[in-house]
Every structure is written in C-alpha cells, then in structure tokens.
Amino acid sequence: MATRNRTTVYRKHRDACKSARAPLSLSASDSFGGPVIEMVSGSFTRSNHTSYAPLNSNDPGPSSSDAFTIGMPPAWVDDSEEITFNIQKVRDKMSELAKAHSKALMPTFGDNKGIQRVVEMLTHDITDLLRNSEKRLQKLSTRGPSEESNLRKNVQRSLATDLQNLSMDLRRKQSTYLKRLQQQKEGQDGVDLEFNLNGKMSRLDEDDELGGMGLDEHQTIKLKKGQHVSAEREREIQQVLGSVNDLAQIMKDLSALVIDQGTIVDRIDYNIQNVSTSVEEGYKQLQKAERTQREGAMVKCATILLILCLIMIVLLVLKNLLL
C-alpha cells in the first residue's frame, strides 16, 4: 500500500508557470507585496525553484477557491440536502425512541401514559419524516440519458438505500416493542384479567346461587378498570400495527430504487457500459427518426409535384381543347 504524493512537485511547477506566464501583470497590480520584496523574490524564483515555497504565504494559496468560483448547484441539490438532513433527524429520533421504548416496557407501579405518549409521538414523527423524505425522493427522478439525470438517479439510489435501512431499523424496533408489549399483556394483565373475570364469573354464579344479591360495588369498579386497561393496550397495539403497515408501504416504494448487492447491476463497469449503450441506442433512434422525417418530407414534395403535374396536364388539355 505504498503511495507517493506528487502534489508539492505539481504545485511548485504550477506556481512557477503562473509567475512565468504573467510576470508583468503581477508586478503591476500587486498591491500588498511591496515592490522591493517582489523584486527580490522574483529574481529568486527564476534562479531557483525550490526556494519559491516560502513565497506561497504571500499568495492567497492555490487551495483557496477564489481562483475558481464554485458555481451555483442546481435546485435538486437542495432536495437531496433536505433529505440528508431529514435522515440525520430520523437517526436522532430513533435513538430517543429506543430509550423511550425501554422505559415504556419497564414495569412501573404508577401510570406510564406519559412515556407511552412520548413513544407514540416519536413514532409518528419518524414515520412522517420518512414519508416526507420519500416523497421528496420521488421528485429527484428524471428521464433522459444525460449525465445530469444519471447523477440524479445515483443520488436518489444512495438516499433510498439510507432510507430503506432506517425504515428497516424502525420496523424491527417496532415489532420487538410490539411483541414485548403483547407478552406483557399476556403475562400480567392477561392472566390477571382472565383470573379476575373467571373469579367474577364464578362469583356471579355463586351470587346467583346465593340469591341474586347483585354485583359487589368494589368488584364492578375493578372489572371496569381491567376492561379499560385492556382497551388501552389494544389501541396501542393497533397504532403500532398501523405504523408498521405504513412503513411496509414505504419500504416497497423504496425497494424499487435500491440496488441489489452482488448482482450485475451493482457492477461499476456494467453501469458505465449501460449508459454508453443507452446513449448509442438513443443516437441510433434519433438518426432513424431523422431519416423517416426526411423521407416524409421528400414523399410530401413528390406528391405535391405530382399533383401539380396533373393539374398542369389537365390545364394543358383544357387549353388545347378550347383552342
């Protein structure tokens, strides 16, 4: 893995070339290097290339971008930047979500609705962000075989891969959360509730047997509370399921864009050839089109001529007849 850096040699020579190219204009317009220094260093440069390096500090330096102003990037770059920003945001939120998930699953005595709300909100936000980015991503696509569109396609692909990975991640988190939630439900509430209900039922039977004294006030409250809790859980599960489905949709859309690794589509040379063949193909099509068009014009001309000829003949015959 040896390498050799030739940049300094290159720069040295480039600077030498530059000073050789425009020595006059430089000394005339040089405002900050004093005339004395200029003369001294100038003679230095010509006599000895290696001692030119210190002079560099006077110059703006070849690495600065003012020699060649960076042009305005096209508008789609904003889109792609926005998506990148979104992806970053999603990543942050994902880590928050992971924390919230583990907190929500922790057995608490009090009510953990607060945490659950946070989970809900985070999930909602992330899904929104993903959906938003996906929509923007669609906007990036273009048609035509030009370099520009190729570039955009590749940007789109790379972002799509990122987005897909993120949504996969989110889905995985969601489903484990969901599973654990259900486990908890079965493990505590489920058994409890069932037990309670069974107990209730048997009690009811007992009560009936005892002569229909009606429900115990305390037990009714307990039952209602149990029902309430289970409904709450049900709702949560529904919600998580809903977001899983949403994500599945997004995944499906994205997967059309993402490259399968290890296949021919993932080969660099194949892609280059593909572009060049499609360009060639396009060129051929164009030629063909041109030919047919020209032929069309020719045929038109011929028909017009023919019609004119006929008209003339008719006129001639008419003229002869009349005379």
Partner: peptide
C-alpha cells in the same frame, strides 16, 4: 506533471497522487 501543471491555469487541481 509539468504538462499538467502548465495547463492548470485556473488552479483547480487539489492533489496529485500515485
């Protein structure tokens, strides 16, 4: 290297490596 440096009037080359 000299040929390349000669034509790089706008100083767009950032590095030259092997």
């Amino acid at each position: 290297i000299h040929i390349l440096a000669d034509s790089d009037e706008q100083e767009v080359v950032q590095q030259v490596q092997e």
